Simulated scan of single mutants.
Amino acid sequence: MDLDTTTLRVAFATAALTMLALFYFVTYRSTRSGYSGWWSVALAWFLVGSAAFILNGTEHQRWANPSGNTFLVLGAASAWAATRSLTGSKTPAWLLLFAPTVTAIASFADDPVHNVWTGGPVFLAMMSLMFGLSARELWRIDRELTHIRTSVATAATCICAFYAARWVVFMVDGQDGDVFKSVFGSQVTTIVSLIFLVVVSFSMSILSNEEATKALRAQAGHDGLTGLLNRSEFLRLAAAELHETSAALILADLDHFKAVNDTYGHPAGDRALRAFADACSGTVRTSDLVGRYGGEEFIVLLPNTHLDRAEAITAQISEQLRLAEAGFPMPTASYGITIARPGIDLETSIATADAALYLAKQQGRNRAVRA
């Protein structure tokens, strides 16, 4: 039994509504991630767009068809924003609305009263573009999520290629051509889109949950106040690093930190800790490790770094701390420096750096001492 286009569009709208309800209440409300939020928005626009096309052939076609084109492209743009959020990129409103706006102008200007395919070339091109950009973002995300990432990226790539092929055939064969109607007509497209919608929604649900789990795992390994590695995570990563290479190890302590709390209050002390953490992060390389060892004590591991360079880095950190603006004089810092090597217990190297830090305190503070 052949299904007419209207029946398929109703089925698609029903599926979109179901996916939206499931994704919002099951995934978004449990993860609250930007990714799942954007995909919920995309599903809502797909639902509205497909529902608008149900009015094809009625007196409402003049506004329904252009609106359907616009909403579907807006849904594809929202899907792109969802994939961008996975890499931490925000999508400006003008960038999100550019393709839908172009689609709306082209669709409303192309005789929507009589032309069922009003704005067709622009609509197909923008759908292909948005899904292509989504696929590009998905292929770039964390390799740890290879299985899920690959399935979603592949689906986005396929739908991008499908709309690109529709555009080519539309331009060559025309909207009334036999090839376009039989291979890329509304019935075939609705079925393909329905399959894509279900597959991607479930894949994105899994991906969103994995992203949330990853974020919680990362949060568990970082200090809540400074954003640096916490003690246990630093020790784990440093031990792994020292299996293969030597590294300079720096133990740092803020001088007279209790006086900052007593004089200016604990919020000021927190600002001082964050300022020192920022000074460390802004000075070392991305391959170096920086952690909050406890209280006002910090620890830094600099792989393949000699003592002279490590001491120069402590001077740079202290200068950055001195220049920090917090509304009160920043405390100085003392440092103990040693070289940690493979085969030597990490705790032993930390104890050596701690002994050097003690000497720095004895010698008057605000200095670095090598073990």
Rank of each mutant, 00 (worst) to 15 (best):
P342V: 02
A268C: 01
V369F: 08
G227C: 00
S67T: 13
G132W: 01
F257S: 04
P303W: 03
A252P: 03
K361I: 00
T5H: 14
F53S: 11
F71L: 12
G294L: 04
C158V: 15
A99V: 10
R274W: 11
V300D: 03
F25C: 06
G185N: 02
S134L: 09
T118Y: 02
D262H: 00
A135C: 07
P112E: 04
L228K: 04
K90G: 12
T150G: 04
G224W: 06
A52N: 14
V300I: 12
E244L: 09
S205G: 15
N69S: 12
R143N: 05
D111S: 08
L133V: 09
A218M: 15
L138W: 02
G57F: 10
P100W: 01
S186R: 12
V260Q: 01
P112D: 08
L138Q: 02
E296G: 00
D223Q: 02
N209H: 14
E311N: 08
Q363D: 15
G343F: 00
N230I: 07
A368M: 01
Y28Q: 07
F71K: 11
K361V: 01
P342R: 05
F328S: 08
V183G: 00
F257P: 02
I344G: 02
V284A: 10
L197I: 04
H256N: 15
G265V: 15
E325S: 13
T305L: 06
M19E: 14
L133S: 05
V284E: 15
Q316R: 15
